[in-house]
Write a protein that binds this DNA or RNA. Structure first.
Lengths: 180, 180
DNA sequence: TTTTTTTACTTGCTTTTCGCAAGTAACACT
DNA sequence: AGTGTTACTTGCGAAAAGCAAGTAAAAAAA
């Protein structure tokens, strides 16, 4: 998120979307509120991803500003704020489902492939159920948190790339440069 | 991407996926190579989003390392490297399509809503065509770049959130804190 | 009623990444 | 040989991320 909101880039919907939630935390928050029925700051904070509280606050503010979530104070506890998805927010369900499917298929995660595979075969009904729970404010989680305890580490069949694209000579002495 | 690759977070597929391409550039590169048939460093660089060359190089390296793209040297020009999607990479097509649909629906972009709306009604055939072009190495772009010249600025119906969630008193003197 | 705990944050500080400008090695073209 | 092109790298300042600690208000406990 460095340099965020600075210069407007292209008008491509993909680009515009990524400027809103194209970071490593926003979609995790949306996942939590969408399928785990998390509502409070505390729940997000202890969701297992280890987000820092200042970052969480910033992301919640950003998602609010873009109309993806709302913040409601409950009458039960005056301190407590309940975050929930707007219609715009629940419309991210298909995206999140694809993210879930892709990750399960291609990375070694803690998710049971069988279940996700079945979700892949029934996208429409999964999405209908997620939306139904949202509409009814169903406090029941749709999916549990997945932990990859005991998951074998992925040995990826793609070796870390030789710095150049596989050509013969090295072009410049590469030492650092960015990733990794 | 600050602090990237540092501590492994949860085993949730969503989290794992976002650790790979959860930034503002990776999916744009994938979009370019997937639907615009871009192949070279130069094309990505001048794609209209304004990515810096060092960031682009870092992202290409990362996507390669995760087996999402490959780099092939062409026999035509020894300098030129052609990037293309792997099977794992083309499997991101559904995700990208949802990103496109969501952005078009909820943000004011340069994309013609009518066309995207039709794509929404025919997800399967759109994806089949994208995949066909990938398999056949079709050099023809599937979609043109969208520019939002002349697009009316979005006035979003969600006001910038009052710093607290809409409760009565302010809890602490907030001055900055993060977003915006 | 006073003390302790909980909730939802903010503040300060260090580390990491971003983004820009400039440079460079290998190759191609003229 | 000289110029241009491609695919990068390097250096640097400015943001943003991440960590630890602090704080206001409300609730629960003593």
């Amino acid at each position: 998120m460095a340099g965020r909101q600075k210069k407007p880039r292209s008008g491509c919907p993909v680009s515009v979307s990524l400027e809103i939630f194209g970071d490593r935390w926003s979609l995790l928050i949306i996942r939590d509120v969408m399928v785990r029925a998390y509502r409070t700051f505390k729940e997000f904070q202890t969701s297992g991803e280890g987000i820092a509280s200042n970052i969480l606050a910033a992301r919640l503010r950003n998602l609010q500003a873009h109309g993806i979530i709302t913040a409601e104070s409950t009458n039960a506890d005056a301190r407590s704020i309940h975050y929930r998805l707007t219609e715009k927010g629940i419309d991210l369900a298909p995206l999140l489902l694809e993210l879930l499917i892709w990750g399960t298929k291609h990375e070694d995660t803690g998710a049971p492939c069988a279940i996700i595979g079945r979700m892949e075969q029934n996208r429409a009904s999964v999405l209908a159920e997620v939306r139904r729970r949202w509409r009814d404010r169903d406090p029941e989680p749709f999916l549990p948190p997945f932990s990859n305890e005991g998951a074998k580490p992925t040995r990826n069949p793609f070796p870390p790339p030789s710095p150049n694209g596989g050509r013969k000579p090295t072009r410049a002495k590469r030492k650092s440069g960015g990733e990794k």
